[in-house]
Design a protein around this nucleic acid. Structure first.
Length: 226
DNA sequence: GCATTAACCACAG
DNA sequence: CTGTGGTTAATGC
């Protein structure tokens, strides 16, 4: 443990920005930083967990095994909390998390975290905001998945990667076709077909995992109309 | 009926 | 792993 690790961290969460010096030392004393390589499992569904997980850096996929197939719930980019909902009320994880890139994750002791919630209202406030944003995001995703059809969901995912993850229109899909299917609720074959269709129609420039979004306005239309 | 959508299977790079 | 073609089932004109 390193007392200074959180004090001088430049990837602090919005919540942790409200911690004082003494609190940051306590945090540093009760958390641990772990590096994960691409494909490493950060935590697994049904395993016991007594930590709050914070992604300092990197991309993580959050997934759950459904009755039919694997479902990717979302892709999270650090810095972000991951797993407050799983660890707060329950002892076991309700989903798994896997590193997509090389990732740095902080495991924060739950009692320390709860202590901040109890004593630092600014900290708590930021955590609540985070949870609310998450819930709203999930509501939207739920509607999308249920009411849109294949191409709409794929267009959604492409725009998500371009706007939220890479922040440019040329993306390198960090998922296999099979996983991209798990994310968008399509079979791997369908993902393949939809992408080649988009390519043929000039909406994207497709080159394996390298995808360039050429007509984002049209992709948005497809995404909205389903 | 006919068209659309998407899943499943099989096979080829 | 990925792309494609054929087949099949469900759903909506």
């Amino acid at each position: 443990m390193n007392l200074e690790i959180c004090k001088f961290c430049n990837k602090r969460s919005l919540a942790a920005k409200h911690l004082g010096n003494e609190e940051l030392e306590r945090l540093g004393n009760n958390c641990n930083e772990v590096r994960f390589a691409k494909g490493d499992i950060i935590f697994k569904q049904n395993a016991l967990s007594s930590n709050i997980i914070y992604i300092k850096e990197g991309l993580v996929k959050v997934h759950i095994s459904g009755p039919e197939r694997e479902q990717i719930l979302k892709i999270s980019k650090g810095p972000a909390f991951l797993g407050i909902p799983t660890t707060f009320g329950e002892k076991i994880n309700h989903y798994s998390a896997t590193a997509i890139n090389d990732t740095i994750v902080c495991f924060i002791d739950i009692m320390t975290f709860k202590g901040f919630i109890a004593t630092n209202s600014e900290f708590s406030y930021e955590i609540i905001i985070d949870l609310c944003k998450n819930e709203i995001y999930n509501f939207h995703r739920c509607v999308n998945q249920l009411q849109k059809q294949g191409p709409g969901r794929v267009a959604d995912a492409l725009l998500f990667f371009a706007d939220e993850i890479f922040e440019r229109d040329h993306i390198e899909l960090p998922l296999l076709r099979h996983e991209f299917g798990d994310l968008t609720g399509n079979s791997r074959e369908n993902v393949s077909r939809i992408l080649t269709d988009f390519n043929r129609e000039g909406l994207i420039n497709l080159n394996g995992k390298n995808i360039e979004l050429l007509k984002k306005d049209l992709l948005r239309q497809i995404s909205e109309k389903g």
